[in-house]
Design a protein around this nucleic acid. Structure first.
Lengths: 203, 203
DNA sequence: TGTATTCAATACAGAACTGTATCCTACTCT
DNA sequence: AGAGTAGGATACAGTTCTGTATTGAATACA
């Protein structure tokens, strides 16, 4: 058998993964601890040996996704900043590649957001995560703009907020009506216009 | 005492109202039938005398909000279409005035959407409601554009989809960070640019 | 005025869920 | 090889929730 530490952390990881799936399927309240354990191939004994409560699991899961997000950004940023392609390709690429499974990620993300809108502590955690993500995107925008000889007429962060807002709303529509709103269609139609409107050649 | 029919429908209305509040506070799964009854000032007897189950209540509540929305739109459209103001003022005005309590409406709306993303039947109902709302907005846009001598270079419905997506994402940010993102700020900053980009004087 | 009916309250049965306490198994370390 | 330990399974207690069945009160109607 495996050494115990690796075994334990593996169990924990599988429980977190199971929680991600089950939360996406049924929501936080709708998913029972037993559902999660079953999905991960364990019983509640394993769960309470790794987490103090369901609430604690939610926090841990949030932290885990935050860490994963951070790691992915660090891995992707250098490529996107230097490699060819337009500013928007880079920004939308980062948004998409950090959410490999669009549907699951959106469900979890919406669930977290809803939770945060009701719980100030969760809101703080979520806002920190979003601020971090936004900052990465903002820097990416600034770098590419400068490299391309462009100057923005609004703060880059404001522009990024707008992109994130549109992306979130558009994803919701795409998931609800995949035929009518193909993924990314709204972004690709309108964001070039916005970028055009807020940028000019730097002197 | 009241005549029984009025009494009954009043009870039903109060239960729906209570459900709206409690759902907004705790979410669908988090709110128990008893919570809802207590909020409305009744016991579960009243509830099961008016609704067959919690699921049925959710459907009824959705239908009720849909009806309310429809009524409000009909009341507002004539004013907005004819009275002065820009196209964007009219569109954003309609979006805002149909959601008097931004926070509660967003919570309920997000909850419904999440529900619909997991339940095809709910998705169909939600899509119908959204289609109706979108159609009203689209016609409003078309009317005002024509009256103002403007021509859109993209389908009006596509433009409206984009406005709705941005509005939804922006509202989420505003509720999470009211100080950093005042309500409506993203829309008012960027939508004029988009409109400028997709419209031209009609020949 | 008396009877029937409607609506909501109360009492209750059954299910599901959380969290705890105990036990068992497999690995570690000497 | 044998003792100790950690991780996970099993069994259980207590709570909470949904939904039903019954009861009581107020109104309509004859």
């Amino acid at each position: 058998m495996e050494p115990p530490k690796r075994r334990r952390s593996n169990t924990r990881a599988r429980l977190l993964e199971g929680a991600l799936e089950v939360f996406a399927e049924r929501g936080f309240h709708g998913a029972s601890v037993e559902d999660i354990c079953e999905r991960a191939g364990f019983t509640r004994g394993a769960f309470y040996s790794n987490f103090g409560s369901k609430d604690e699991l939610v926090l841990a899961l949030f932290q885990a996704t935050t860490d994963r997000l951070l790691g992915q950004i660090e891995a992707l940023l250098p490529d996107l900043a230097n490699q060819p392609g337009t500013l928007l390709d880079a920004v939308l690429g980062l948004l998409d590649e950090t959410a490999p499974d669009q549907r699951q990620w959106h469900l979890i993300s919406a669930e977290f957001t809803l939770h945060a809108l009701r719980d100030p502590e969760a809101a703080e955690a979520l806002n920190k995560q979003r601020a971090m993500f936004r900052k990465s995107l903002t820097r990416l925008v600034e770098q590419i703009a400068e490299a391309g000889g462009l100057e923005l007429t609004v703060p880059a962060e404001q522009f990024v907020r707008m992109v994130m807002a549109l992306h979130e709303g558009a994803r919701s529509q795409s998931l609800l009506e995949p035929r009518e709103v193909p993924a990314g269609s709204l972004e690709h139609t309108f964001l070039p216009m916005v970028l055009e409107a807020v940028s000019r050649p730097s002197r």
